[in-house]
Write a protein that binds this DNA or RNA. Structure first.
Lengths: 241, 241
DNA sequence: CGCGTCTGGCACACTTTGTTACAACTTTCG
DNA sequence: CGAAAGTTGTAACAAAGTGTGCCAGACGCG
């Protein structure tokens, strides 16, 4: 069952906000609205918003500020509404991380097309599935029980994993056959940014290899991509319980 | 090691094309140009293009047609250049899958900001350069498993490949029977521009030949094209799993 | 044949990665 | 509360991968 994307329209002018939400709903999108940045922040906390349409000029906290905050704390795409058609404003908007902008007055059909375009791009990203009902991940005989945080070999014998090892393995298993940089892996496992000479991922990979590779000197599962990062090379089978 | 994104500008008007490429290069991007859709298709085959800036109105095959083709066969982002500022044209462009558009005459700085914005979004995704669902490439007994980064001989024995060797071989296998210049190979394998006396590709070819040629003194698979580059001469069979 | 240019291969320098050791920190358990 | 065990990041060194300089030989052209 496909649930339609949830759009949040943030604009202080009711004459803009309400018709727009109606129009979007009529075209198969779920749409909510907020009349201020403060109101929007509440909605963002309590709803699973997929995309934000955001007016720049608003009393109180303005759109650019909220946009910046969104960019820092989430990956929710933002389309800016701007009254001015000046180049500098457009550029500033894009530079602080908005995904697109539309100048007022706008053609609703064009805005809809842009929303769909941005959603399409965002959807293309292999996003970590938060609605993971998957409980077990299998690969070449191994079984990782995500709920119990347990890894069992083909013979059924459990191999204890530390927290970091479990997170690293999970990150790999959710994204097999693609190269993951150290920075990405660090982000996925601990959510922190890399130091200048950060070798912690190397170390964790080394430790994980000892536990899951037949010969940790000739790794088959976690391959090194010189100058690129690491890649999990086995097929992964998901088992939802 | 600088690996700046590689932009392809496609426009039939030299007065647009050339200054734009210069401007992009001045701002830290690698830029190539094509004067027609046909020329562009060639470049797209032999270079690792990260983003396309595409004029809609061109003699011969027009921009929309090429854009549609790009969207069907790859995930390379497209920014459209359009002479008209009419809503319908914008919408059509976005609906067939362009990532953004700019109306002529355009402000170079704005276009640059849009290019950066689109690249940032695309860059978040580990980009599959080709629409490669292909998992195995076979040639005269050899089998390259692209997902596992493994090369196996006719006898099934695996030959270890380094990252650069793997990338080089993949570049060849995806473009057999075509002469590839050193510059193109460098672009395809490491995404960087060539130095003045760059011999790294020669070196990698030499190393690769030792691994896959029966007699690396008389290469049969990777032939040297004097003054031109290298050419992979065997037939390649793709196996999609 | 002679000349300049291009290519193959080697050696070496440099970068990146694997591994070990160790210190700092957390958790467990008495 | 404190000791013991386990976990994790940093540093250091060894090993592997990669690029550059060089030279001899191959090639194209007169």
């Amino acid at each position: 069952m496909e649930t339609s994307p949830h759009i949040l329209v943030i604009d202080d002018e009711r004459e803009i906000r309400e018709p727009l939400v109606k129009y979007l709903a009529k075209n198969g999108l779920r749409a909510s609205m907020a009349a201020s940045a403060a109101e929007a922040r509440k909605d963002l906390k309590t709803s699973a918003i997929d995309l934000v349409v955001l007016d720049i000029m608003m009393p109180g906290e303005d759109g650019l500020s909220l946009c910046r905050h969104l960019r820092e704390t989430s990956e929710i795409p933002v389309i800016l509404l701007t009254a001015m058609a000046e180049d500098t404003d457009r550029v500033v908007g894009l530079e602080i991380g908005a995904d697109d902008y539309v100048t007022k007055p706008f053609n609703p059909r064009e805005l809809l097309a842009r929303i769909r375009a941005v959603l399409r791009r965002a959807g293309a990203v292999p996003r970590p599935r938060e609605d993971m009902e998957t409980k077990r991940l299998r690969f070449v005989g191994w079984t990782l029980d995500v709920d119990r945080r347990e890894l069992a070999g083909a013979d059924g014998v459990a191999v204890p994993l530390s927290t970091a090892e479990f997170r690293l393995l999970t990150a790999f298993l959710q994204r097999p056959h693609i190269v993951l940089s150290r920075e990405q892996l660090l982000d996925l496992t601990s959510g922190r940014a890399a130091q200048v000479f950060d070798r912690s991922i190397d170390n964790q990979v080394s430790r994980l290899r000892r536990k899951i590779e037949a010969d940790h000197r000739n790794p088959e599962l976690i391959k090194t991509v010189w100058g690129g990062g690491y890649m999990f090379t086995a097929d992964v089978e998901e088992e939802t319980v």
